[in-house]
Design a protein around this nucleic acid. Sequence first.
DNA 1: GCATATTTGTCCGTATGTATA
DNA 2: CTATACATACGGACAAATATG
Lengths: 236, 236
Amino acid sequence: MSTDAESMGSILSTGLEADRLLLGRTSTAERLADILRARITEGFFEPGSRLSEEAIGGALGVSRNTLREAFRLLTHEKLLVHELNRGVFVRRLSVEDVTDLYKVRKLVQCAVLREITAPPGEKLNAVEAAVVDGEAARERQAWRELGTANIHFHQALITLAGSPRVDELVRGLLAELRLVFHVMADPQPFHEPYLERNREILETLKTGDGQAAERLLAAYLDDAEKQLVDAYRKVM
Amino acid sequence: MSTDAESMGSILSTGLEADRLLLGRTSTAERLADILRARITEGFFEPGSRLSEEAIGGALGVSRNTLREAFRLLTHEKLLVHELNRGVFVRRLSVEDVTDLYKVRKLVQCAVLREITAPPGEKLNAVEAAVVDGEAARERQAWRELGTANIHFHQALITLAGSPRVDELVRGLLAELRLVFHVMADPQPFHEPYLERNREILETLKTGDGQAAERLLAAYLDDAEKQLVDAYRKVM
DNA sequence: GCATATTTGTCCGTATGTATA
DNA sequence: CTATACATACGGACAAATATG
């Protein structure tokens, strides 16, 4: 057993105690899920690895019952998979998962853009901010932040639909996709080329031509899928 | 305390014990969720009512810990809402929820049909079956079954996308909508008029004209939304 | 293939905090 | 404000399944 509670605790322990003292607004399980979600999406827990109830519960100072509730939350977010009597594991996506994720993205994200027929005006502020953030990150060669900005771009785009459920759906899809990006060695070629295409989509939307923006996004997602699937096949 | 364990147990107890003896393939929490989900979607637990951990746990003979895991599952399916330190309640949808649900339905379901450019052939078998079931139910004036067939129709339609995630998404949307139907007194006017429109969409799809089918479905969903929202406003 | 150790699944009892009558 | 009911969270226990040697 390599993962003992102490070594893990030193890395995992965040402002949990401070939060608790400050104001325990949410339940312990939810805060636990927040911590674990961050660790998973940043790649600290690698896909396929098992999350031991005892090790993590001990490291974070919570009981097994509480930890299991946090696991349930993340399992329903599709970040963990639960195998009966075997425990929970960080989700490992198949190539089919990736293609399905892009299929849904194209379906939903393109449909949202298509319905735009007039300049959205201030609604594009968040989109613009994400593009600017991405350009700044490229300037600093901060590839991880560039990836984050890229995700924010798509999340901001989707809010144009004005639907809480569509927001949540796409947020989930992107969270799943992050599991794939972290098995890649070099994130740069997966994000950098799309930066100017983000800008192009933004400018097209400003004119109110949703149909043109949709075509741009469709091509964008097709290219991204191809590139990602090719690279993913090699590391699996 | 009106809900005592005994009276509830007599109604709730299903083949739980049999299942357990037969083969405990799934976890207890999942089987519990199955039972509760059925009770909710069939309207036994009314929207807004609280599900007491003690009463239900006692009635079904499971511990509170196990029951809470089942609650978590149903909460993430949006059938229950969890209020911190207050418990779980059967979801009560707002009018905004209903309009949002239809917005997503139009977005996704129409996009699926639009992409069809050739006769789907055997893929329509399940759709055809749902239409036939609905017509048979109307014959018998079995309105509840008609509603079920109607839901099957849309679920079958969506499988044409060939995407597990789209399937799951729409399944969730329809499950949420069922919460609305159960607060209505008479289900007939909400299902019966759409039967022939289902048939019309089916026949159009057989010709491979997805765009025409999409237009039919869009009008269909617009009408259904209007009718449902109008009726829902009155009972809220 | 077998025996053992580990880990999860489930349940219980209890102490604490929170909401409501 | 007090009292009650309830949810939250913990720790311990044992059974069942799995992994390991």
